[in-house]
Simulated scan of single mutants.
Amino acid sequence: MNFIKDLSELEIIELISEIIFPRIISGILPFGDDSIGTLCGGKYLIINSDMFIAKTDLPKSLDYSCAGWKAVTMSVSDIIAKGAKPYGFLMSLGLPRDLPLSNFTKLLKGISSALEFYDMYLLGGDTNEACDLIIDGITFGFSNSRLIPRKGLKEGDLIISTGLFGLTAVGLHLSLSNKTFDISSQEEKDLFYKSICHPVARIDVLNALNEIDEIVASIDSSDGLIRSLYELSRANKLGILIENIPIHPAVISFASRNKLSPKEFALYGGEEFELIIGVRSDKFDAIYEQFQEFGITIYPVGRVIRKLGVYLYENGKIIPVEEKGWMHFKQTKY
């Protein structure tokens, strides 16, 4: 292996960890978690960095306001997954010199709309010339109570999600394909489009995360359900058995009409920004009711098992699930 293209994103992160290890500070959250956290003035300060690049993150069917919105949401979601409220946003912009001002204005309006929605403030940043649109976003957040790591699971714990999956995978499929699909209505088409243009980080779940003590692990699903479950498996050195795939009804309907697999859309999508949460199994009924009190419906996904990896219980059999989903460099497609 002689080039970056020969490595996966995970392998690159492992190389960074190996070479720079003496100068890595893990803080309260271990290196490799969604964000970095530390105590600051009696509160938990949490910081996340995420990068948006037009070539890989902006399908041609989306305009630049979608890019601005997504660039903020990508970074915010990781902060929320740790139980912290996002507060401030730093951004470094790499701008092509031939980017039309009309598109740049749309980009800024998308960023502004997202900051307003998440009740955040722009703290500063940097600009430079680049060969593609690049947005490096850094979000700062605070928590008064605790931070929820990826690591905290034990055998027998339950895995739940805050939402249903598959919309963004269908939206991207429609955006990238030249084929004609059977779409039932304009409302269905708009639903799929909105999922990739205007995804929403689950800021509405924040109070529940801070109040429900039985939540022991959390990660967002921005890289897809399966990728996120694998991240939990690696962080805890345990396995996860999927017993239920929470698929959006519109995805099931679309897939059925077009002879496609709703399971594939739900498992291997990405940028849904739902939270995948680990809870103690003996507390599930109480936890379900507590989430309901906050107006949040949770969906069972599976349970934690001893054997490392991710598996699917289907038709009476336990089947290993391949790790796929969005990954830069060596693997650049679903």
Rank of each mutant, 00 (worst) to 15 (best):
P300M: 08
S17K: 15
D78W: 00
N210K: 11
K85Y: 10
M1C: 06
G37T: 10
L101V: 12
N103Q: 14
F140P: 00
E155I: 12
R227S: 13
D50A: 12
H248Q: 06
L62D: 02
Y118H: 00
I47H: 08
G239F: 04
S145A: 04
E211Y: 11
D98F: 09
K60Q: 14
L10K: 13
G166N: 07
S233F: 07
L123I: 15
N48Y: 03
P249I: 02
A54H: 09
S281M: 12
T180C: 06
D98S: 12
L164S: 12
T38H: 09
G278L: 04
D190M: 11
Q290T: 08
S112G: 05
N128D: 15
D157V: 04
E272P: 02
L238I: 14
P59A: 08
K154D: 12
M1G: 14
S49G: 14
I247N: 05
P320F: 11
K85Q: 13
T162H: 04
L209V: 01
I79K: 02
L107C: 01
S228I: 00
K189D: 05
G37Q: 11
F291Y: 04
L15Y: 13
K60Y: 12
S221Q: 06
L123Q: 11
M51G: 00
T162V: 15
S256D: 15
L45C: 05
Y193I: 01
A130L: 04
R150W: 05
I24N: 03
D282E: 15
F89P: 00
D63W: 01
I135T: 00
S261V: 01
E11A: 07
L164A: 08
Q290V: 04
E231P: 00
K324V: 08
S92T: 15
L122E: 13
E14S: 15
E18Q: 13
R227D: 02
R227Q: 11
F117E: 09
I4P: 08
I135Y: 00
T73N: 13
F294P: 06
A130G: 07
V251F: 07
G37V: 10
C40F: 15
S17A: 15
E187R: 10
T105Q: 14
A81K: 03
I25G: 05
K263M: 14
T56C: 12
K82S: 15
Y44N: 06
P22W: 05
M1V: 08
E323C: 04
K43C: 12
A130S: 15
E11V: 05
I219T: 09
Y334H: 03
S221T: 13
I16L: 13
L147K: 01
L107P: 03
K317Y: 07
G278W: 09
G42E: 11
S177Q: 10
D34T: 09
L93Q: 02
L308G: 07
Y44H: 02
S218T: 01
L312H: 07
T168R: 14
T297A: 10
I196D: 02
E116F: 10
Y121W: 11
D220W: 05
S221I: 00
